[in-house]
Simulated scan of single mutants.
Amino acid sequence: MKKSLKIMTIALLSILLVVVSAGCYAAISFQTAKEKSESKLSNKNKGFTGDEQTSDKELTVMIVGNDSRDDDEDQGRSDTLMVAHYDGKTKQPKLISIMRDSYVTFPDGGQDKINAAYAYGGAQMTKDVLKTNFDLPINYYVVMDFKEFSDIIDELYPKGVTIDSEKDINLDGVDILKGKQTLHGNSLLQYARFRMDEEGDFGRIRRQQQVMDALVAQSKDLIPIWELPQVAGKMVGKIDTNVPTSLLIDLAKDFLSGKVNPLKSLSVPVQGSWNFNDYTESGSVIEIDEQQNAEAIKNFMKDN
């Protein structure tokens, strides 16, 4: 009896040692990778105050894609604005894509394109505009530029991402042919950015959602889970975000498990809720019915 107890004690201690060692290895790997990456924390977003989570199983993250190239005449404006919602209980990811030229009301009562919010007041102003127009609560933010997106895709999906391209596309020296193919970081970025056709931003939003859908659907083919701490460290070092590291890793574990449901998407403005207008101080805009779109977002967020 004593011998059995001794064996059991040794076994439990061994398991505990393995768990502690794995935890230490993960923490060191994460921190080392983070320190080697260039920190992207922005003074512009340090004062961000997110809404409290209604549940520790649900979160809503505002994603801002910032085209910060020197030749961009609208430098500092958001090129892409999305809101991602994830319910950890139902394993349901959702994505709201908001067109950059949507003409919205700012907290001071003025109006402008929604992509101007980031230039005026960073992540906080963008969050406030989403709240003012759509009553949309935001817990956290992520801001990244084109290069960061491309690098992260190559880190997480080293074998590339399979996409069925809608059409032949050429943008920034990248040629993508119509049909099913595997795209890596920069090519996937150009596919998601393209809007130089008759559909403009409407087609681009659809392709961005197609890309996000592919990323979720193929997330089970991500890096091995033991590489997650190191890659997570690199990501946190490259992007500007206030999402807690522990939460990022927990989310990644869900997606790596392959048990996450297919992505549900919504484009704003919704059909029948907008008109073009060329006679504003902001130039050509998409005028929207704020109440109709707020209601559509509310119903989308409730639907499981």
Rank of each mutant, 00 (worst) to 15 (best):
G88P: 02
K6G: 08
L171Q: 06
N43Y: 10
K238H: 09
D250Y: 03
Q271R: 08
T9A: 15
R77F: 05
P262C: 09
I205M: 12
G237D: 08
F194G: 01
D172I: 09
I7D: 09
L215N: 07
P224M: 09
G283T: 04
A84T: 12
L177D: 13
I152N: 02
D74C: 03
Q190V: 04
P262S: 14
D128K: 06
M301H: 03
S14C: 13
S39C: 07
I96T: 09
V216I: 15
N242C: 08
L156P: 00
E281V: 12
D303N: 14
V18I: 15
Y103E: 00
F194M: 02
V61C: 00
L13N: 09
R207S: 07
T80E: 02
L12Q: 11
L95R: 01
Q209P: 05
E166G: 14
T132K: 11
A217K: 14
M1L: 14
R100S: 03
W226K: 12
K259E: 15
I249P: 04
K46L: 12
S4W: 12
M1G: 15
E295I: 06
Q271A: 13
S29C: 08
F194P: 00
L256I: 12
A296L: 03
K127L: 07
T245Y: 04
F146Q: 00
K3S: 14
Q124F: 02
R100W: 08
K147R: 12
E148H: 03
T32V: 13
V104F: 04
I98F: 01
M196S: 14
I249L: 11
S97E: 02
Q271H: 02
